[in-house]
Amino acid sequence: MQILGLYNYWVFVALLMIGFYAVIAKDNLIKKLIGLSIFQAAVFLLYISMDKVEGGTAPIIQPGAVDQIYSNPLPQVLILTAIVVGISTTALGLAIVVRIKEAYDTIEESEAAAMDREA
C-alpha cells in the first residue's frame, strides 16, 4: 500500500510535468489544449489518491451493512466539479481555435503571432 501511495504520487508529478510542458512548449494550439487536459487530469489524480481508505469501498451505504469502512466522499465531489470545469474550458478553447484557423489560416501560435506583428 505504501508503495502504491508513493507511486500514485510520482505518476501525478510525471503527468503534471508532461501536460504542463505540452502547454507551454508546443506551438500547435490544439496540442496546447490537449496538454491542458492532461495537466488538469493529473490534478484529478492527486485529489482522488487522497480519498482511498485501506480496506474501504466506494461510499455508497447499503442499508443493513455494518462495520463497513468507506472511502472519503469529499474529494470525489470536488473532482466531479473539476472535470466539468475542465471540459467547459476545453470546449471554449476549441471554439476559439476554430475561429483562429478561419481568421489566420493557421493554428500554429508562432505563425499567428508573426501575422499579428506585421499588422
Binding site: 502547454v23 491542458l36 492527486l46 499579428d116
Partner: peptide
C-alpha cells in the same frame, strides 16, 4: 479585431494554468 482571438487564447491558457495551480494548492 481578429487579434482578439489570439489574445483571448493566450488569456485562456494562462488563466486555466493559474486556476489549476490554485486547485493543486487547495488540494
Amino acid at each position: 479585431d481578429r487579434r482578439a482571438l489570439t489574445s483571448v487564447f493566450k488569456y485562456l491558457i494562462m488563466g486555466t494554468i493559474g486556476a489549476t495551480f490554485y486547485l493543486i494548492g487547495v488540494g
